[in-house]
Write a protein that binds this DNA or RNA. Structure first.
Length: 894
RNA sequence: AGGCACGUAGCUCAGGGGGAGAGCGCUACCUUGACGCGGUAGAAGUCGGCGGUUCGAAACCGCCCGUGCCUACCA
């Protein structure tokens, strides 16, 4: 017998890289456009090239890999399309910071040189995250890896831009946008984070032009008063009605501005009079448009006061605020200052306070695109899972606003628009134009703005497949099967892919959208570097093994919104991996001399243990398959966990040990080896999507011919293996053994002491069934002699366990702990009585009898009968014990 | 301000209209020839509170309390 040499514990570090390389070298994850198999595809949410693997990536990609491996094993032609995102602002910031360390800045370098530097940086560090994904086991088709700025994708971006522009779905316009003075770029609404902050609410008095009156306005940003071009009041407001049409003298600058009536003004808030600063507030901007007001920009791109700011020119906006407040105070026109909490917008990248600013930007007209995207989800061409997110999706889509897509940075897709040097005509085309369509001029300057990073991301599901070319990839793999992502980018990304996919492909980009939770720390906080609460997935993988980590993520994936990762859980699943390892070690040792079976064995001829485990395995196949089909990762994980540990290891392996060790029945031994082999192999396959590495490591040692478990068939449910009788008989065995063990525990009997056990089973068939599996009971409960008795033969001095269909007695002689036994029996009687009470209450309720479904009533009746029998037996037993106790006492035994 | 989640054993969390579950932790015992990263047994919860629907609610509905998140142009 050649012994397999396996170490006593599973060491993940030693095998993970080896198998990943093996898979990749042999191209097991490669998709094939010529395949006759049905296609199954997922596009990865492309991580930023600046990124390094965090918990969110780990969860997201683990779930994708589980689905991908599952579907691949089920026989689909699988494509998992990988790639990375150029991450405009983020990447530019990183490189700028690096330059700053060398005392350089991008302006000194110039645009071209700077972009060159970014590409260099990308070559050097951009692959970090993809290597980390490989560590995680992600079975992407790396031969197709794409980057949002590579040539093909850039062409797709230009194509889309040009087509949208010519359909008037992209326009350039003056608008108030979110400006980050530090990044010096416009941001979309989504890129602004709102946080509640403490501030002051200033009450400022503006003098009326006609005579000595004053009107009070209220603001949190006094410095913007320099750009005020009106004061607005609600036309329904009696206090101010007469003032509408009057003029106000703007303090400090002494500009005349009108008092206007506008219904948007809230009469309840502050004084009910609103200072209108169209160039620095969205709301004011809209009022100004409606009333044809002037728009005066007083804050510049760098956050400093501009030339319209009069005496404050050149000051930082917050310094200016202090100064102006001081000036008002001095003049006695600062009427009040109160504490106030309100939301302030911050740049999502650098946390600088956003300055709403009037600016000329490029926009996508989103409403026409959104209609189709709403329709596609309404009629379920794309299904959002879990469906609660549909509501959020609709809410946003229905209230969508035009999308500001231009960014004043350098790293990104430069907008394909050119301005004629002679007449300023805008020409939008994929390549630089030859001559101006209006004046025939031949000199052009290209638009300097680049596109929002999410613009190229929106095209990802088809641009990565080769669009605008008509490729085989598009034909086979579009629409993709599912998109798996966190809810934090539902609007940023999912919604926009829906719009673009429908617009340019004429079909939804994915059939399903599965939204998973975000990973938070143990206090439920979002993990972030600044909070210092990050758990580094790479360290976790190193310490506990990738498989244990992946399994933990899958097991946690149920929660709606949050996953608070606990290291104890990961440790628990490391133990699970080790358990699998050792069960396999045991199995392999005992399979060493297995040479296969001569001919197929009839399932119904097999031993109880064999039929039972095959039947249970089969059920587990069904559970795991159904769970994964519906993205219920935690349920799949739990089903396979329970099967392997608590059925395969706890019971099956223990049950078959005598068979494997014994030499007498070679036929049963061979069949059992066969079943062991089959179930172990099947369990590994079921587990493979969750734990790819350990399953491969073990599977390769099994006597089989396959190249890799990764491309082996996923087990299929087999109706022929369903065996209710085996399940029922094993239940009897397990309860009997449990009863004996319980007595052992309660009576404090040493585990290795062999017992004489008496079974009283008078019900029909129970005794016969138990007779057939007595060997299991004898072995696992460490029984010396197992005898069946009738109720007349009950010994007095026995510890007993009363089950619903039998009694287990262990004669104890003098060793019987009378008091302990009395206590235990009383406790059980109490429990039974309580259950009886509940059953009685139900059965004596006429309405229950008449209204509850028949099977429920029947169930309660049966239960009551069983309880009554059990109660009777327990009382009998108690009586016996008390009798002994009484006689012992009367003999003066105490 | 609106909206959406969540509140179940000491901890982390499943489940979900008819007998309260798992893992970890805890207690006791066990080096039984795969595994002490193990085994066996055990203790432990008025399923956030109050109402309602129902024959029956931990689950469905309403309100309240607590927590978290998302959306929003109240200066």
């Amino acid at each position: 017998m050649e012994a397999q040499v396996l170490s006593k514990t599973y060491e993940p570090g030693a095998v993970e890289d080896k198998w990943y390389e093996y898979w990749m070298e042999r191209g097991f994850s490669r998709a094939d456009t010529d395949s006759t198999k049905a296609p199954y595809s997922i596009v990865i949410p492309p991580p930023n090239i600046t990124g390094s693997l965090h918990m969110g990536h780990a969860l997201n990609n683990t779930l994708q890999d589980i689905v991908i491996r599952f579907q691949r094993m089920r026989g689909f032609n699988v494509l998992w399309m990988p790639g990375t995102d150029h991450a405009g602002i983020a990447t530019q910031n990183v490189v700028e910071r690096k330059l700053a360390e060398q005392g350089l800045d991008r302006h000194g370098l110039g645009r071209e040189k700077f972009i060159e530097r970014v590409w260099q940086w990308k070559e050097q560090y951009g692959g970090v995250i993809t290597n980390q994904l490989k560590k995680l086991g992600a079975s992407c088709d790396w031969s197709r890896e794409r980057f949002t700025m590579d040539e093909g994708l850039s062409e797709a971006v230009r194509e889309v831009f040009v087509r949208l522009y010519h359909e008037d779905l992209i326009y350039k316009g003056n608008y108030i946008i979110n400006w980050c003075p530090r990044c010096r770029t416009a941001l979309s609404d989504l890129e602004v984070e709102h946080d509640e902050e403490s501030a002051k609410l200033y009450h400022l008095a503006y003098p009326l032009k006609s005579g000595g009156g004053l009107i009070t306005v209220v603001t949190t940003r006094p410095e913007t008063m320099l750009g005020d071009t009106a004061v607005a009041v609600n036309p329904k407001d009696d206090r101010y009605l007469v003032l509408i049409g009057e003029k106000v003298i703007l303090p400090i600058l002494y500009r005349e501005i009108p008092i206007i009536g506008d219904e948007h003004v809230d009469m309840e808030f502050g004084s009910g009079a609103l200072k209108v600063t169209p160039a620095h507030d969205l709301n004011d901007f809209e009022i100004a448009l409606a009333h044809g007001l002037e728009m005066v920009k007083v804050i510049d791109e760098d956050g400093k006061m501009g030339k319209e700011a009069g005496p404050y020119q050149g000051m930082d906006r917050f310094e200016c605020r202090k100064k102006i407040v001081g000036d008002f105070e001095r003049d006695g026109t600062l009427l009040k200052m109160e504490d106030y909490r309100h939301n302030v917008g911050h740049c999502y990248r650098c946390k600088t306070i956003i300055e709403p600013t009037l600016s000329k930007q490029w926009f996508v007209r989103t409403k026409p695109l959104a209609e189709a995207a709403i329709q596609a989800v309404t009629d379920r061409r794309t299904k959002i899972i879990p469906s609660v997110w549909e509501k959020t999706y609709f809410e946003w889509m229905n209230n969508i606003r035009d999308w500001c897509i231009s960014r004043q940075i350098w790293w990104g897709h430069r907008i394909p628009a050119w301005y004629c040097e002679k007449c300023d005509e805008i020409i939008v085309s994929k390549e630089e134009p030859h001559s101006c369509s209006r004046c025939g001029g031949r000199e052009f300057r290209q638009e300097t703005d680049v596109l929002d990073t999410w613009f190229s991301s929106a095209l990802w599901p088809f641009s990565t497949l080769g669009w605008p070319k008509e490729t085989e990839e598009l034909r086979v793999f579009y629409p993709t099967s599912v998109l798996i992502t966190g809810f934090d980018i539902l609007f940023f990304w999912v919604a926009r892919m829906m719009m673009m996919g429908l617009k340019f492909m004429g079909d939804v980009p994915f059939r399903h959208v599965y939204i998973h939770a975000l990973v938070r720390d143990i206090q439920g906080r979002k993990m972030s570097k600044s909070r210092g609460n990050v758990i580094d997935p790479l360290l976790v993988m190193k310490e506990y093994g990738t498989d244990a980590f992946r399994f933990t993520l899958a097991a946690f994936a149920a929660q709606g919104r949050d996953i608070c990762l606990s290291e104890e859980r990961i440790e628990g699943y490391r133990h699970f991996a080790n358990k699998i390892w050792n069960a396999s070690r045991f199995s392999l040792t005992n399979l060493a001399d297995f040479r296969g079976i001569a001919h197929e064995v009839d399932f119904h001829e097999m031993s109880l243990a064999n039929r039972w485990i095959l039947s249970r395995f089969n059920e587990t196949v069904r559970e795991v398959t159904e769970a994964l089909e519906e993205y219920r990762f935690n349920e799949g994980a739990q089903a396979i966990y329970h099967f392997i540990w608590h059925e395969f290891c706890d019971w099956f392996l223990e049950l078959i040990k005598p068979v494997l060790y014994g030499k007498d029945d070679q036929q049963e031994r061979t069949v059992t080896q066969y079943v062991l082999m089959r179930v172990l192999d099947g369990a590994l396959r079921l587990l493979h999507p969750f734990m790819p590495f350990i399953t491969e490591e073990i599977w390769q040692r099994l006597p089989q011919e396959g190249k890799s478990i990764m491309i082996a068939d996923f087990p299929r449910y087999d109706g022929g293996l369903r065996d209710e009788e085996a399940i029922g008989d094993m239940d009897l065995v397990m309860r009997t053994i449990g009863g004996i063990r319980n007595i052992r525990g309660e009576m404090d009997i040493a585990p290795n002491k062999r017992l004489d056990v008496l079974l009283l089973a008078e019900e029909d068939g129970i005794r016969e069934r138990l007779e057939q599996c007595r060997k299991y009971v004898i072995h696992l409960a460490r029984v010396d002699r197992l005898s069946f008795i009738t109720s007349g033969q009950k010994p007095r001095d026995a510890a007993r366990a009363v089950l619903r269909d039998m009694e287990i007695l262990v004669p104890m002689g003098k060793g019987l702990d009378l008091e302990g036994e009395v206590r235990r029996l009383k406790k059980e009687i109490h429990k039974v009585e309580k259950d009886l009470e509940i059953a009685d209450r139900k059965l004596s309720n006429d309405e229950f009898i008449s209204k509850a479904p028949e099977e429920v009533v029947e169930k309660v009746k049966l239960k009551k009968e069983a309880l009554l029998i059990r109660e009777k037996k327990l009382r009998e037993s108690l009586g016996k014990i008390l009798e002994i106790q009484g006689s012992t006492l009367s003999k003066g035994g105490r």
